[in-house]
Amino acid sequence: MTTAAIDRARRWRPPPLIANPVLRWALLLGAVVYLALAVSGIPVNWERVSEGLERGGRFLAGFLYPDFSSRFGEIFEGFVESLVMTVVATVLGLLVSIPVALGAARNLAPLPVYYFCRGLIALSRTFQEIIVAILFVAMFGFGPFAGVLTLVFGTVGFLSKLLAEDIEDIDRSQVEAIRATGGSWFQLLNYGVQPQVMPRLIGLSLYRLDINFRESAVIGIVGAGGIGATLNTAFDRYEYDVAAAILLVIIVIVMIAEYSSSAIRRWVQ
């Protein structure tokens, strides 16, 4: 080996992630300064926290000994409401999402329709479900109806966006082949597009069903129906064993939903 080669071997280092050294150090410094500012800016009342540790212990204990029985009626009613809201909202959301998704797919829709549908999706995706729920409760009154509307609103943003992206990714040649046979626009959708996006549509709907259930547990906090109200009350009363029971049921339902939806997805593939 020549000395130059040895020298080169000695100097070799893996290239850094950010090539520009100034930028690299500036970013690092910025991150450190930000972290220092952010952490020091959090007011912590240690007395309150240490007090809370005891409550945290009680909550964990509640998980080991959840109390299903003492408020069984409320819990049962809450979950029934959450589940029916989930079902109705997912189905309605799906029915609305399909035309919106077709409109939001650049390869199918004319430009004005495309912009309109994309705008609709952006609107739905920007606002948190809970904020939408507050507004709908103010408009339609307390209860599951406002909750269903909230979930439908969220479902449309979610499903249409992902479905539209999937439609934009389809194999164009299959569509072209149907077009070449002289099929009409609807036949094109039925033969060229639908078979290609169907498995994904089913997968996304099941996924959204799962999300809607989880959301339905939250929007009850602002009065839009579902198990959330019961949960909120339990925390307010410091009934951690009841809260733990509700959370356990949520976890179990989500797990069941996840396992069955992955099974269904494998089946439709």
């Binding site: 040649s173 299959q174 149907i178 046979t181 002289g182 099929g183």
Partner: peptide, 24 residues
């Protein structure tokens, strides 16, 4: 029309693909 990458609708059966020739 006959295509390079066949352009069959992959998730449909052979029969459905052939019959799609009658869509017009």
């Amino acid at each position: 029309m006959i295509f390079q990458e066949f352009a069959l609708v992959e998730r449909l059966t052979v029969m459905e693909n052939v019959l799609s020739g009658r869509l017009g």
